[in-house]
């Protein structure tokens, strides 16, 4: 169950591995957060405020929704609920990572790993063989968050000088990154492929079908995730970690 338990590789080695896996995430984040920075300033935030949001939140969809609510003068309850619903998937990822770290890992290190729990960092962490070392997370998180914050700053500070066509093109960066994470495993594993296709189908259904489309996008993602992953966990048992 835990082949990597007696992991004798050093802090430095794991940290460097984290940096290496984090570099492409960092560069992808630069593009996506650049788009976020542009939009934040368009919504009336200052460069400093936009940058602080990225530093303290490190979420994509949640931040985009958040600045929309701030611009619309929404209530604190509304902004709290939006973050809870849109980001609830991270708690499921945290459950998964809780099974991959040393059970004796102290709370402070757990909080550090939790702070940087994004879709992409989760994906590279889950793909690590054996037990997840906190030094790996430190490397992956620090370089990724640096890219996320720097990109936001640059987008907020200088984004307005870019032509509309470039801004439109940057809109696809986030989704390109998502596809790069899910397609290779879907190629290798039939059940993963079916989970991906089912989730996409249900997501389209919940977006456009009468009544179902009234569900907010944050809830939609949670419901679709629970249905597709739950169904395949029931009909096709696959042990986690062994990817």
């Amino acid at each position: 169950m835990k082949p990597g338990m007696s992991n004798n590789s050093s802090f430095r080695e794991n940290f460097l591995a984290g940096l290496k896996d984090g570099l492409p995430i960092c560069l992808g984040y630069l593009a996506v957060s650049f788009a976020f920075g542009i939009q934040a300033v368009e919504s009336g935030l200052t460069v400093f405020e936009a940058t602080m949001i990225s530093l303290l939140n490190v979420t994509s969809a949640g931040q985009f929704a958040g600045i929309g609510i701030i611009a619309a003068n929404g209530s604190f309850l509304e902004i709290a609920a939006s973050q809870l619903i849109i980001n609830l998937r991270y708690s499921l990822m945290s459950v998964a990572i809780s099974q991959k770290i040393d059970p004796k890992l102290p709370t402070l290190k757990r909080l550090g790993i939790a702070f940087g729990m994004t879709d992409e960092i989760f994906a590279v962490s889950a793909a690590r063989p054996g037990v997840l070392q906190p030094s790996f997370s430190l490397g992956a998180i620090s370089i990724s968050v640096a890219g996320w914050v720097l990109g936001t700053f640059l987008g907020a500070y200088a984004g307005q000088i870019l032509p509309d066509r470039v801004i439109s093109a940057l809109g696809l960066a986030l989704y390109g990154m998502f596809l790069a994470i899910i397609i290779p495993p879907a190629r290798d594993s039939r059940p993963v492929l079916y989970v991906v296709l089912l989730a996409m189908f249900l997501s389209v259904l919940f977006t456009y079908a009468p009544y179902l489309r009234l569900i907010s996008s944050g809830f939609r993602i949670i419901i679709v995730t629970l249905l597709s992953a739950g169904l395949f966990a029931t009909i096709s048992n696959k042990d986690s970690g062994e990817s």
């Binding site: 499921l92 990822m93 993963v192 991906v196 989730a199 389209v204 048992n237």
Partner: peptide
């Protein structure tokens, strides 16, 4: 085993749902 299986499929389901449409 079910929970482990579920957690294995989880990120694929979430990212697929977030990407399409």
């Amino acid at each position: 085993k079910w929970v482990h299986s579920f957690l294995y499929y989880l990120p694929f389901a979430t990212l697929a749902a977030m990407t399409v449409p």
